[in-house]
Simulated scan of single mutants.
Amino acid sequence: MSAFPTEDMELTRLLVVTDVGRSRQWYERVLGATVEREYGSACVLRLLGSWLLLVTGGGPTEDKPTVTFAAPDDPDRVSAELIFRVPDCRGAYETLRARGAEFLTPPVDRGYEVRAFFRDPDGHLFEISEVPG
């Protein structure tokens, strides 16, 4: 029996998007991701040592017979988000805004952290967060 997890494994985050090309450009321009490869209607990105797989939606397949992949249909209902821990939330906010990120609000200081939220073109939620001190 194999161990799980092992040191040689990696984790990939899959995001369902409506337009892979548009999303690829946004992830490159705004977040600084790099394209590792593209195939079919999918794009593999590298970001901060992690993998992001952008795919378009689709119906069930033989190995996931009851599962449909769909981009978010309501950006105000979230079941997952990606969080960037940053040393300077306000500085990251200004940099990302200049690159085209649209934030819900400017950074909010909650005392124990400073954070701000933004979305990708399909509504996936992102957070930048700074722990003061």
Rank of each mutant, 00 (worst) to 15 (best):
residue 53 L to K: 09
residue 114 V to R: 02
residue 50 S to W: 10
residue 97 R to C: 11
residue 122 D to K: 01
residue 22 R to N: 00
residue 119 R to P: 04
residue 91 G to N: 01
residue 39 Y to T: 13
residue 10 E to H: 15
residue 56 T to E: 14
residue 97 R to Y: 05
residue 87 P to R: 06
residue 108 V to G: 02
residue 90 R to Y: 10
residue 59 G to I: 09
residue 27 Y to Q: 04
residue 11 L to H: 07
residue 120 D to M: 01
residue 41 S to W: 12
residue 70 A to T: 15
residue 56 T to V: 14
residue 124 H to G: 03
residue 103 F to D: 00
residue 111 G to K: 05
residue 65 P to F: 13
residue 86 V to L: 02
residue 14 L to R: 13
residue 3 A to C: 02
residue 37 R to E: 15
residue 77 R to A: 08
residue 122 D to V: 02
residue 7 E to N: 09
residue 78 V to L: 03
residue 109 D to G: 00
residue 128 I to W: 02
residue 4 F to M: 02
residue 37 R to Y: 13
residue 33 A to L: 02
residue 4 F to N: 03
residue 77 R to D: 07
residue 53 L to V: 12
residue 59 G to Q: 11
residue 7 E to L: 09
residue 43 C to F: 03
residue 58 G to W: 08
residue 121 P to W: 08
residue 43 C to G: 03
residue 79 S to L: 06
residue 133 G to P: 09
residue 54 L to K: 03
residue 21 G to S: 11
residue 90 R to I: 09
residue 58 G to P: 08
residue 57 G to C: 05
residue 51 W to V: 15
residue 97 R to P: 07
residue 66 T to Y: 12
residue 38 E to P: 06
residue 71 A to F: 08
residue 130 E to Q: 14
residue 19 D to G: 05
residue 19 D to P: 04
residue 103 F to A: 04
residue 73 D to W: 13
residue 39 Y to W: 12
residue 6 T to C: 02
residue 11 L to C: 10
residue 38 E to Y: 08
residue 40 G to T: 05
residue 3 A to L: 13
residue 17 V to Q: 05
residue 82 L to I: 10
residue 114 V to K: 05
residue 94 E to S: 13
residue 31 L to T: 02
residue 53 L to S: 10
residue 3 A to K: 09
residue 123 G to T: 07
residue 74 D to W: 06
residue 105 T to H: 08
residue 11 L to A: 11
residue 1 M to V: 11
residue 133 G to Q: 11
residue 54 L to Y: 06
residue 91 G to P: 00
residue 1 M to F: 10
residue 42 A to F: 11
residue 18 T to D: 13
residue 77 R to F: 09
residue 34 T to L: 07
residue 83 I to S: 12
residue 99 R to Q: 10
residue 63 D to F: 12
residue 11 L to I: 15
residue 108 V to M: 10
residue 110 R to V: 10
residue 126 F to D: 05
residue 69 F to Q: 09
residue 97 R to N: 08
residue 33 A to Y: 03
residue 100 G to S: 06
residue 112 Y to N: 06
residue 27 Y to D: 00
residue 95 T to V: 15
residue 103 F to T: 01
residue 62 E to V: 13
residue 24 R to I: 08
residue 25 Q to S: 12
residue 118 F to I: 01
residue 71 A to V: 05
residue 14 L to M: 15
residue 64 K to V: 14
residue 98 A to C: 06
residue 27 Y to A: 00
residue 67 V to K: 11
residue 55 V to K: 13
residue 5 P to V: 00
residue 73 D to M: 11
residue 124 H to F: 07
residue 120 D to W: 01
residue 123 G to E: 07
residue 37 R to N: 13
residue 76 D to C: 09
residue 114 V to W: 00
residue 71 A to E: 03
residue 26 W to Y: 09
residue 66 T to N: 14
residue 93 Y to G: 04
residue 49 G to C: 04
residue 67 V to M: 15
residue 49 G to E: 01
residue 74 D to F: 07
residue 81 E to C: 10
residue 109 D to Y: 04
residue 21 G to M: 03
